[in-house]
């Protein structure tokens, strides 16, 4: 039962065919993330325009179905949002994965919330939460232009 919640069709599909995989042309922000426990790596690229709107976003990396699907869904719905909105969505998602029963951000449409909630099954697998959150932490680093590699162990 739990496994079915974790490996929903949408997760498997995004894991197998991740969206926005590659490097954004003319990106102006990026950051790398690393999970030393499993060796997963992710590199998030952003193109922010003058109005601080995410014109384009992508990621490179390899990892488990959860981490790939999470990065894929994240990039899909962050595209077109402005920096403020993106940061609130990241916080909302991390809060949901950690403790909140649902998503609250008004910047997320209902269908986007439904998509993100597919990742909530990971809550029952504490060792796997980092797989779902790595790309999101890395997105924050990219927006903050942090030069340090995001590390799930620090």
């Amino acid at each position: 039962m739990n496994l079915k919640e974790l490996y929903q069709e949408i997760i498997l599909e995004h894991g197998k065919n991740p969206r926005n995989l590659g490097k954004v042309h003319e990106f102006n922000k990026d950051a790398k993330g690393h999970n030393p426990l499993c060796g997963d790596n992710v590199h998030v690229y952003l193109k922010l325009n003058g109005q601080k709107i995410v014109e384009d976003i992508s990621f490179e990396g390899s990892g488990c179905a959860i981490s790939m699907a999470s990065a894929s869904i994240m990039t899909d719905l962050i595209k077109g949002k402005n920096e403020h909105e993106a940061k609130e969505i990241v916080e909302d998602f991390l809060g949901m994965i950690k403790e909140n029963p649902d998503l609250k951000s008004e910047y997320l449409k209902d269908d986007e919330k439904t998509k993100l909630m597919c990742l909530s099954g990971v809550k029952q697998y504490p060792m796997r939460v980092k797989c779902a959150t790595l790309s999101w932490h890395t997105l924050t680093s990219a927006m903050d232009n942090s030069k340090e590699i995001t590390n799930t162990e620090s």
Binding site: L3, L6, Y7, C38, G63, Y125, M127, R128
Partner: peptide, 19 residues
């Protein structure tokens, strides 16, 4: 991915390592 394998095996009571 090996981590997905380990999680699914664990659900059947099979403890292995992935990484």
């Amino acid at each position: 991915h090996p981590h997905d394998i380990a999680t699914i095996l664990d659900e059947d009571g099979v403890a292995i390592r992935a990484g």
